[in-house]
Nucleic acid binder design. Structure first.
Lengths: 298, 298
DNA sequence: TCGCCGACATCAATCTGGCTGATGCTTCGG
DNA sequence: CCGAAGCATCAGCCAGATTGATGTCGGCGA
């Protein structure tokens, strides 16, 4: 006997309950179905096995010898399944895997994740950083924090905060040209990652629509995280999200010459698969972010 | 997680195969269903658990951590179920329980059952004798041999042999009245169980329709088996099935004065629940009886 | 002894979960 | 750049599962 597709597995569950309760009627109650349905399933199972499992006695049913032998093993197997499935829930709730950018991880999560952990001692957090947006269908992960437009098919997204940017450089570098007084002054200095599309966006906001970046040597740092490091090191001017570098500005390691911020329309979002919105750990993280982000949107 | 009625058990079986084969398509082949159906069942299970179980990678799927933990336990549980269900077949085929009358058991089965056992060494036989016709729905038993008209609802019946009867007595008793020469002579002797309805049936066959049995003391032996014993002991005349007492006649313990046999229309039948006609042990016994009984009818 | 009650079987009708076939999407290999 | 492999999606269909009503049987109490 192998459990081929046509074997009535559901009938086994009904049998288990019935054997335990010694009653079709009560088994039906426990399973939330009618006595008729129980009778049908038991008969189906008996026909499949070719052996009667119950003796229909007045007032109650009794197991046949065959049924008597079968019942404990079936019960044990179902216990095992129930335990395995229950364990899934426990264990899977125990670890929250967050995918995000290195920048967001180091500048925001690093400072606030401790609060989440204190509030949710049962949940371990695993951070995964990557450049590209992950596909939940092919990479393990529970939630992601990404910049974008907030629309991803199949994913639920919550607005976290605007994504602004503005040029930053080290105070030392600014001093080499007698200080930065107007936007055009920046063009006297090396531009870090001049191919970054944020540059024309920002310069057009300050009225310099046709600034030419082609004369700068191309650089490709990849993550913004490295732009910042280069700027702090005095390598040139980087265009950065000021929200993330307040500390460096306060410490005098970076200097933000202009208050004006530009945006490319990509904001920060918390995203996760629509289908998993009710997972406990995801709910916990969502509520945490709601508290931490003043502009959080459902 | 308890295995409530709405939990998709079938999806677990699909999951087990898929986890083993690492492929929706091949799992579908093994289970005899389409890849579409596998996809549906896996998604159903994932939605129920609220956890992805597979990572959809190009060329093949891979288990998530959750799936990786779940798979072996589910596999083990299904192995246990398969073993239990397989064992049922083995064990239930190993014992054949026959319900019959004491008379048939002692006079026919006792002499022939050995042949069946030799031909079917794997099948143990258990005999149960009782006066009334058993109800397979409330008493354990595989087959029954009973006299009757051959029509029982829900039961398959095979004709075995006619049920005749004729008076018998001990030779010694016959000698006390100078021998039994004509049917009326019997009425000079004590009649065993005069209330047995076979008596008027037999006497009317020999032309004595109005024989009066009321003057005999009533006796109630129950089984025919005891009538015979009483007759052999010389207690009186019994009306018996000659098929069963050939040995006693040959040994001179019983004497059958007349060849004429009567019948009440009740014949011997082999019966068993229609639904179990394909059970191996029942098939084996049916074929055995077919060989042994010249008039066996399907 | 009669009649009611509890429990399972049966029946007819309904409904829905699961399956299929077609199609689309993505990736890999040539 | 195209074809093959593999999974997802969609719409439609059907058999099996479920239900409510009813039938049957045996036990129990008055």
């Amino acid at each position: 006997m192998k459990l081929s597709r046509q074997f009535p597995l559901n009938a086994l569950r009904v049998f288990e309950a019935t054997a335990r309760l010694k009653s079709f009627t009560r088994a039906g109650e426990e399973l939330g179905m009618t006595q008729t349905a129980v009778s049908y399933q038991i008969k189906l199972l008996e026909d499949t096995l070719g052996e009667p499992l119950f003796l229909r006695r007045p007032r109650q049913v009794a197991l046949t010898e065959v049924g008597e032998r079968l019942a404990p093993k079936v019960g044990e197997a179902f216990d095992m399944l129930a335990e395995a499935l229950g364990g899934i829930r426990d264990q899977s709730e125990a670890t929250l895997t967050i995918h995000t950018t290195a920048t967001f991880a180091s500048h925001w999560l690093a400072h606030h994740l401790g609060t989440f952990q204190v509030e949710n001692p049962g949940i371990a957090v695993r951070l995964e950083t990557s450049q590209s947006v992950i596909d939940f269908a092919r990479t393990e992960g529970d939630v992601a924090i990404r910049s974008g437009k907030g629309v991803w098919p199949g994913l639920k997204s919550h607005f976290l905060m605007k994504s602004h940017f503005t040029p930053m450089l080290s105070p030392t570098l600014a001093a080499t040209i007698g200080g930065v007084h107007e936007p055009a002054d920046l063009l006297k200095l090396p531009i870090i990652d001049p191919q970054d599309e944020w540059w024309p966006l920002w310069f057009s906001r300050v009225g310099l629509k046709d600034a030419d970046f082609s004369r700068f040597p191309a650089t490709q740092y990849g993550a913004q995280y490295f732009h910042a490091a280069a700027a702090i090191a005095g390598q040139g001017v980087a265009i950065l999200r000021p929200e993330f570098y307040g500390d460096d500005v306060a410490l005098g390691r970076l200097y933000q010459p202009f208050d004006l911020l530009a945006s490319d329309g990509s904001d920060y979002w918390l995203v996760y698969p629509e289908s998993r919105r009710n997972s406990r750990k995801i709910r916990a993280f969502r509520e945490f972010m709601r508290k931490m982000m003043p502009d959080f949107q459902t």
